[in-house]
Write a protein that binds this DNA or RNA. Structure first.
Lengths: 192, 192
DNA sequence: TTCAAAGTGAACAGATCTGTTCACTTTGAA
DNA sequence: TTCAAAGTGAACAGATCTGTTCACTTTGAA
């Protein structure tokens, strides 16, 4: 039992699913244990507290999303390659497991700016924005910071729109607006 | 004690403040009672449950926001009058009481689409969008629905950006993007 | 001054929450 | 086959949660 499907990873996966379906405060430790079939003593051997478990869940999700974004961005070095983030959103919105963004919801439930969960969530969004900026800075360095911020604003707007109204087309609209911004900033290849 | 500063209203105001500061699940009934100085029996005389209190808080906030928006829109009948919503956001973001949007956070904590709190929150956003659409439909009826949806996406994006990063300029950026959309849709007065 | 409506305060109920402890069992590498 | 590491299960602790009840008090209009 030391290696295959380690309990720790199974706890993180189960917790992620339940946090998404029900929220952080509304998901008790006991439910995570029941659904994962892991004992309470084991949970507290791996995680010091529920907060530590939440942070572990967010860290995993953060790594996955950053990696996926990097992969998309490197596949299309053109400035408009950044629009791939909206295609990622679009696919996500079509899945049944979409319940909004972990990090936005976490920052809402843990609203104090100094809370570790809030800060980590804000850090995730910053890092996503930094990826976009890096990609754009090769083409339009003067505007890359502003553009990246604007794109992230559109990303979050699309996520919340999809979360609240089950609006599955939110990513496509955000993508169009984003494209307009790129054109307006003259940070896109010419349409030949 | 029947009329002046009714207990019911006082409970709603206190609950609104605490929900904003701490979130819905994280704010217990007992805290609301302690901070408001009202007895538990009185609370349950006025509200059937905590959920009913939450809904009353959201209803009040909904009425306030709709009224404020209507007032702004009627003050400037030009198409670009809709941009007033971003000025409202901007003022809000500068206040110390800004902890994000009640309705976005409520929809995050009560994530089930059929939950009464979730549905009311979605309804609020829809109604705000409907106000924008009505305003625009006088000038560009074919695009007013799409434009209103896009503006609300920018509104929510700005709110989340401000909430997560304490980015007090988020409303101003969203406003500029919104203005671009109006120009692009040719739904604005000419700049003379 | 009377009196019904509104509110209080305190106890109580039962559920649920996070976290601890420990004797015992299972696992899998050596 | 041995044995340390990992995990279990069950009890326990104490806090906190929403909601109920009821004898009593306060309020303010008539």
């Amino acid at each position: 039992m030391t290696q295959k499907t380690p309990r720790k990873q199974h706890l993180i996966d189960t917790a992620l699913r339940l946090f998404n379906e029900r929220g952080y405060h509304a998901t008790g430790i006991d439910l995570i244990l029941a659904e994962s079939g892991v004992s309470k003593a084991t949970l507290y051997k791996h995680f010091a507290s529920k907060e530590a478990l939440i942070l572990a869940v967010l860290e995993q999700r953060h790594r996955q999303l950053i990696e996926a974004l990097q992969q998309q961005l490197s596949a299309d070095p053109r400035p408009e390659g950044v629009l791939a983030i909206f295609d990622m959103l679009d696919s996500w919105f079509q899945t049944v497991e979409f319940f909004g963004c972990n990090f936005i919801r976490a920052s809402g439930e843990y609203s104090a700016a100094e809370d570790a969960i809030h800060r980590f969530s804000a850090g995730h969004k910053s890092e996503m924005g930094r990826q976009l900026e890096r990609h754009l800075s090769a083409h339009c360095p003067e505007q890359s910071t502003q553009l990246a911020n604007d794109l992230m604003l559109l990303v979050d707007g699309a996520i919340v729109t999809a979360q609240m109204h089950n609006a599955k087309d939110a990513a496509k609209r955000a993508r169009q607006i984003a494209q307009m911004l790129l054109v307006d900033a003259r940070c896109m290849g010419r349409t030949e």
